[in-house]
């Protein structure tokens, strides 16, 4: 089976996010990008299918941030091919645009199963797996937590709904799946192995095709939410804080005798 995993670089949410002077976008000159964590699960799901049933795994990413290192890491984890789509993506692109670009790029890459992370921190105009499915006119399923082959031409997937209820669906291939979580924790690639990949492996590059995407919405303001200010912040040394919390719990009768 040919599996394509789309990999997206997103702002690292652990870092402080700075907004630009116009207040309409992140300050792209200081933003630190990392792989979308859900894409790591998509890759893990692909590698599990490869290990258990045999598959050829190709990772595809738009060029932005330190995507080379990310792609080499994917190779070190077990992906077979890594393709970097060259174009003007450093300032971030809408998901509609990314989907249109990737749909064309995938015309030249064998794919029976396309896996993407279910969502990304910045997909304000929708989720990639779904929009890619639409662009390619392929069936798509989001919030997937498990994929197993079902014969040669279909997969059985688990889709999570609210309250922990799970739907089991059979999906004809080719198909696009938005992966919420792989059945196991994404594997780790040791730095030495990534370095070795950087020396021995090659990233393939493709020029981004020109795409036409309808007018999306225009961000006029990007700002921190006004603190609802509900939390009363307790300050002091750990023992003082603990004493205050203890008193609050005791007041509310939450401490059993």
């Amino acid at each position: 089976m040919d599996i394509v995993v789309t990999v997206k670089m997103v702002p690292d949410l652990v870092e402080e996010l700075e907004v630009n002077a116009e207040g309409t976008d992140l300050d792209r000159s200081v933003v630190k990008l990392r792989i979308n964590e859900f894409d790591e699960h998509a890759l893990e799901q692909a590698l599990l299918l490869k290990n258990q049933h045999g598959a050829r795994v190709t990772v595809v990413a738009l060029d932005s941030g330190e995507v080379d290192e990310t792609l080499f890491t994917c190779l070190a984890k077990g992906a077979d091919r890594a393709v970097k789509v060259m174009g003007d993506f450093q300032g971030g692109v809408s998901t509609h645009t990314a989907a249109a670009v990737l749909a064309q790029v995938l015309g030249g890459i064998p794919h029976e199963l396309i896996l993407a992370g279910v969502q990304a921190a910045d997909d304000r105009d929708g989720q990639l797996a779904v929009l890619l499915g639409s662009a390619l006119r392929l069936p798509h399923v989001s919030v997937v937590t498990g994929v197993e082959p079902s014969g040669d031409k279909a997969v059985t997937v688990r889709q999570e709904y609210s309250g922990g209820v799970v739907g089991e669906l059979e999906v004809d291939l080719p198909a696009v799946l938005g992966i919420q979580a792989a059945p196991q924790t994404p594997r780790y690639a040791p730095v030495s192995k990534v370095r070795q990949m950087m020396k021995t492996a090659k990233l393939e590059t493709i020029e981004a095709p020109a795409v036409e995407v309808g007018a999306g919405s225009i961000v006029t303001s990007l700002a921190r939410p006004e603190a609802a200010g509900r939390a009363e912040i307790i300050e002091g040394a750990p023992e003082e804080v603990a004493a205050r919390l203890y008193a609050i719990l005791a007041d509310r009768g939450l401490l059993k005798r």
Binding site: T95, H96, A99, V118, Q119, D123, R124, D125, G126, Q127, V130, L131, G133, S134, A135, H140, V141, S142, V143, Q159, E160, Y161, S162, G178, G214, A215, G216, S217
Partner: peptide
Amino acid sequence: SSSMGLDQAAGLSGTLGWPLCAY
């Protein structure tokens, strides 16, 4: 903006060509 809504909202945006604001 739920599990089902993820499929539906972006899917409808793709199918109908209407802009989508998520979340």
